[in-house]
């Protein structure tokens, strides 16, 4: 039960950006997809889009409470086509399905991990059009037309991506559960040009938690991979 989450009265929301400005953070997919998102989930309840953004914690659970007043939310199914690791996948899913659950539960792409389901740990990090996002905070239906890359799409055949190889060499992980998110994040961190010093790597990799405590090795791995991957001009 959501004992600490109260339904939001939409009448209190007048004049507030319904996304809470979170479009910028790619909560609803790439910028500009909010309208698309609202259209996709129109059959359920617009409250779904308000809940997580305004609660500021991205909790789908929060939206759930609102959705109940909208009636038969759970019966709805929507069709979506996702392009993942260069392949197109047609899915028939509940519109509330996050991108992470679509990957893990519907496509068996279990490399992307669920570590909190709240955008707080980074284990679910994937690349969407080259940018890193928390796939647990993003609804799958908002990603039609996007180029999604997961950990399964980084290696070329048997040849590991330089970031993967560097993580292996530097023992940049222990249990391995945060690792796919760390690696996807590191790929973007390098291409963003945010891996030019140890201090910069530490800061720009801090959205990905590693409870085993492999951070110094992650820094070493990102640094080595960076030296082998010329950064884009930033």
């Amino acid at each position: 039960m959501n004992d600490d989450l109260q339904p939001i009265d939409p009448s209190e929301l007048a004049g507030i950006d319904p996304t809470g400005g979170l479009d910028e953070l790619l909560i609803f997919g790439h910028p500009g997809t909010r309208r698309h998102f609202l259209k996709q989930v129109a059959g359920t309840s617009a409250a779904i889009s308000l809940g997580p953004a305004l609660m500021g914690i991205g909790s789908i659970e929060a939206a759930e409470t609102d959705a109940t007043s909208g009636g038969n939310a759970s019966a709805a199914v929507t069709h979506v086509q996702l392009r993942i690791n260069g392949r197109d996948h047609k899915l028939e899913i509940d519109p509330r399905t996050t991108l992470l659950d679509a990957l893990r539960e519907h496509l068996q792409l279990t490399g992307s991990k669920k570590g909190c389901d709240h955008g707080q740990c980074g284990a679910c990090t994937v690349l969407v059009n080259g940018r890193r996002i928390n796939s647990c905070l993003s609804l799958a239906v908002t990603h039609e037309g996007d180029e999604i890359t997961t950990i399964e799409g980084l290696a070329t055949g048997d040849e590991l991506h330089p970031v993967q190889a560097a993580f292996l060499e530097h023992d940049g992980f222990q249990c391995g559960y945060c690792t796919p998110g760390q690696i996807c994040s590191a790929v973007a961190c390098i291409s963003e040009g945010h891996a030019r010093s140890d201090a910069e790597i530490r800061e720009w990799m801090s959205g990905n938690l590693c409870r085993c405590g492999a951070y110094p090795n992650i820094v070493a791995a990102v640094k080595e991979a960076q030296s082998k991957t010329p950064a884009k001009a930033s």
Partner: peptide, 20 residues
């Protein structure tokens, strides 16, 4: 380097709730 490392860096290592 870890013998299970390759499975972990490629996302191929299966954790409990990931079995099909």
């Amino acid at each position: 380097s870890r013998v299970d490392g390759r499975l972990k860096v490629t996302g191929a290592a299966k954790y409990s709730v990931e079995f099909e």
